[in-house]
Simulated scan of single mutants.
Amino acid sequence: MDFKSVPRRAYTSGPTPIEYLENLSKLLNGPDIFIKRDDYLGLAGGGNKTRKLEFLLADALKNKSDTIITCGAVQSNHCRLTLSAAKKEKIDCHLVLEERVPNSYSPTATGNNLLYSVLDADSKTVVPGGSDMIKEMEKVAKKVEAEGKKPYIIPMGGSNEIGALGYAACAEEINLQLKEDQIDIDYIITPTGSSGTHAGLLLGMGESSRSIPIIGISVNNQTKAQEEKIFKLLEQTSEYLNIENRIEKSAVKVLDDYIGLGYSLPSDGMIEAVKLLAQSEGILLDPVYTGKTMHGLIDLIRSAYFKTDDKVLFMHTGGSPALFNYGSLFQ
């Protein structure tokens, strides 16, 4: 896949590592579990949004925008990293935060909320859960335009046809690493929420000679709705890149068994998964995305979904700063 014609910034030095989780694999009696450490990506605190922002910020700069407006939940990793990228590019950044759980926002909260202040967001607008986030961002854009600025709106999670390019490129990176290390991966397990990571991986793997099945563990939507969302973005990204050989809809696979009571709401399985990986491998997950995704992987292993000689790659999409706002769950 040729990305040379698409503007791109560089926020990470080199590929993120793929590590073998020997202790966890033995603890769960197989399969062999590997982890793609995208928590090591650049910008403040790392995480998967960095890959998307390399393309999104480049597009904003190409359009001569001097202000970024984006949105997310009140503990949004995407908002943290978008703000960080804007600071690096020396442009303004305004955040619109959705209070998905009523009365859950506190201006003195820790985790990502603290980092919004450390990074000095130009503004934070908190809106009720279920708000039309595009319209809310457009309201901020009008205020910014009245001040003589040129805003650039980045959607939730950076998940549009430009942001998804980050994980199409990541799929190429993974395939190169697996070839160099002579590892044959049977499945990739990824969190799936705003859908850019999942759609990008599917596109990148579909364009390669080593197409690996990808299982998304949903953190918010039910299976059918999430699969439709991913496939729509997959089609839009394919069209953006003028790719003729389209990925079949049957390649989009999502499991919704691990959402629990809802997005960002803790579950016993998530707490166990976060503790298990930390105490066996010294790696931190987050309570919203990777914690629930690891819960899904652990449960699938325990229910014999995989063969014991399979090799599974877990996508660590970052987000550990949010962990510090859930301290009471782990003490």
Rank of each mutant, 00 (worst) to 15 (best):
L285R: 08
D309R: 08
A278N: 03
V274C: 14
K292I: 06
K311R: 15
I298M: 15
K292S: 09
D309C: 12
I298W: 07
G282H: 09
R302M: 14
M270H: 06
L313I: 13
T293Y: 03
T290D: 08
Q279D: 10
L297Q: 04
G319P: 14
S280N: 04
G291I: 05
A273H: 10
D268Q: 15
K275V: 04
Q279T: 10
V288A: 09
L285F: 15
D309P: 00
L285H: 11
V288Y: 11
K292Y: 01
V274P: 01
F306C: 03
F306Y: 11
K275D: 10
S267C: 01
T293E: 10
D286K: 09
T317H: 07
G319R: 02
L313G: 13
L300K: 08
D310K: 07
S280F: 10
M270W: 02
T290V: 06
R302K: 15
A273W: 00
I301V: 10
L285T: 10
A273C: 13
G282I: 00
T308G: 02
R302H: 11
I301R: 01
S303K: 15
Y305D: 02
S280R: 05
M294V: 06
D268M: 11
H316N: 12
H295C: 08
T308R: 15
S267A: 09
F314Q: 04
T290N: 01
R302L: 14
I271A: 14
D286N: 11
K311M: 07
V312K: 01
L284W: 06
G291D: 06
H316T: 02
E281M: 09
L284C: 14
E281Y: 04
E281L: 06
R302Q: 15
I271D: 11
S280T: 15
K307S: 12
M270K: 08
T290Y: 06
L276G: 00
D268P: 08
D286H: 14
G282E: 12
M294Q: 08
P287D: 09
G296T: 10
S303Q: 14
A273N: 08
K307E: 14
L277S: 02
L300T: 01
M294H: 06
M315F: 05
K311G: 02
L277C: 06
G269N: 10
L300H: 02
L297P: 13
S280E: 04
E281K: 06
A278K: 03
T317R: 07
T317P: 07
L285Y: 04
K307T: 09
F314P: 05
V288G: 04
S280Y: 12
T293N: 10
L300G: 01
K311H: 11
E272Y: 12
S267R: 02
L277H: 04
E272R: 15
